[in-house]
Design a protein around this nucleic acid. Structure first.
Lengths: 142, 142
DNA sequence: TTGCTGTAGTTAACGCGTTAATTACATGCG
DNA sequence: CGCATGTAATTAACGCGTTAACTACAGCAA
């Protein structure tokens, strides 16, 4: 059934939901001069260790051209380091640098507070339910 | 509780979910040379009739600077018309034009097919449940 | 009327999303 | 080896997201 109004359209609802959630995190990121995408890349590198660019782009939900720009910015600020994969001169391996880890550590407490607040306001069970549904949607469509 | 991995983070999940859903609609929009945002604006105008810019931006989930650019593009293609509100020289009123309505009509069948397919694959009840949760999240955080 | 304050839109600057084209390297085949 | 094909990453071009600054107009008060 076609959604009769814009408000109850799935793409719109996802967009709007993401907007209101990110609005809570944005001030924190802006205060440290990191964009949302740079933050995602740093977190993936922090969680997953040295990773090739393609996998990094995939895990951070960033397209390759964007990743190229993000890498340049993060490398310029010494948040990450970049090296060629041995055995394949095309691949690039990214590693988080001390300054990058320090940023992650510095922001984690604040991030936890925001996330906890969202979870508390929305409800733990409903959040889990929402995450399950989103995961199912993603797996089913991709 | 802080999400332990990037995959089960709410902002990431919302982003990724939106991505996979929009991937289904994007070819349709590209084939008619409309961006996703232009399409949203047209649909709001189609549903709501003549509307002032601020309300339009709000309903289409587009920021004012973006709306200014979108209006220019849509006006250039005769999809919408623009006029000043009588009684208030600051306000701008947007109205969908015949060419715009024609585009909406041309794309609606295909849009329905895509939406129905998503709904069928994901499940009607789960979709409704997801929309409810998203609506609650939006209302609770905004 | 003059001027202050608030509001609607626009412009500017910069980064990302998206697609297409391009470069650099790897692999396989003759 | 030499060349075609494929893949990883980058670059280019254009539109949108985001914030801040700016313009134009409305409303109100002295």
């Amino acid at each position: 059934m076609l959604p009769e109004n814009t408000r109850r359209s799935l793409p719109m609802a996802l967009l709007h939901a993401r907007e209101v959630v990110m609005a809570r995190f944005r001030p924190m990121l802006a205060a440290h001069d990191v964009t949302e995408q740079q933050w995602r890349v740093l977190r993936v590198l922090s969680e997953a260790g040295p990773v090739e660019a393609t996998e990094l782009a995939d895990r951070a939900s960033v397209l390759p051209p964007s990743l190229t720009r993000i890498i340049k910015a993060l490398e310029g600020r010494r948040f990450i380091t970049r090296s060629k994969a041995e055995g394949d001169g095309r691949r690039v391996v990214l590693t988080i640098a001390p300054a990058g880890s320090a940023l992650i550590d510095a922001l984690s407490p604040e991030r936890r507070v925001i996330y906890d607040d969202i979870e508390q306001r929305f409800g733990h069970d409903r959040l889990e339910q929402l995450l399950d549904l989103l995961e199912n949607l993603i797996d089913g469509e991709s």
